[in-house]
Amino acid sequence: MLPAFKLLEPNTIEEACRIALDTDGMFLAGATDIFVAMHGGALFPETLISLAKIDALRDIRKTDQGIFIGALTPHRYFEFNQVMKTRYTAIHEGCAQVGSPQIRNRGTIGGNLCNGAPSADSAGPLLVFDAVCVIVGAAYERTLPLREFYLGPKKTALRKGELLKSIYLPEPVSRSASRYIKFTRRNAMDLALLGVSAYLALDDSGGIADARLALTTAGPTPIRAGEAERRLIGHKPCDSLFSEAAAIAENESLPRTSWRSSKEFRLKLVKSLTEKALREAFERI
């Protein structure tokens, strides 16, 4: 059995936020991270606030400009949904590579972000689609670009009593495509040694109108490689340009050495995978 805890199961977002304000309870979504840590003796929460009964956190709502996706939406949705496959391809590729089908059926997009891991497979792809976090407190709602959501390893901008309600994804422009490459030691059930997400949009003359790059496990948090993006915008896409941008991305990253990989190897990966991700995103347009 899991270490003993008190289970609270609020029915509404407001109730959940109020409980989080008044207790030291921890929010529980798909449990695929929290229970692993609890089974392993690394986490002993006194109170868990289960979000399972709050259906509002599963809402998916399309608007003219984009789509709101409830924080409790499981990875499996992004793996199978046609709009995700065709319009938000990198997000589809990221979520389809989380753990296993069993994990993807339970694990949620909100949990993947709030867990704060620098290796989160959904984080990089969401960053290149300029995702916005919709955050709720007991009596208010605020929005925050995902770029500003991560403060450090396992640290997010969520304050006590706040909950990630949904992710807003702006509609990508028509001549655009994306690619997520996850580098792992084996093909399944592994965390990214390094992840690169690329998004490219072309103008009418075939030049790069917009370029976005995100790196995961290349620093204490998932990051955007802003300098490399600026090098790309306004130029004609070609291999030498992609290679130059990749070298800039390598300079922008701050990976560390862990048991999974050395810092030096991760830097080499940033260079080669960024080139590859840009090339393959471009080929998809």
Partner: peptide
């Protein structure tokens, strides 16, 4: 692995109360 409401899950990571 068991099938919970139509989808495969790891039953070690699901609370029985859920």
């Amino acid at each position: 692995t068991v099938i919970l409401d139509g989808v495969a899950v790891n039953s070690c990571l699901v609370l029985a109360v859920h």
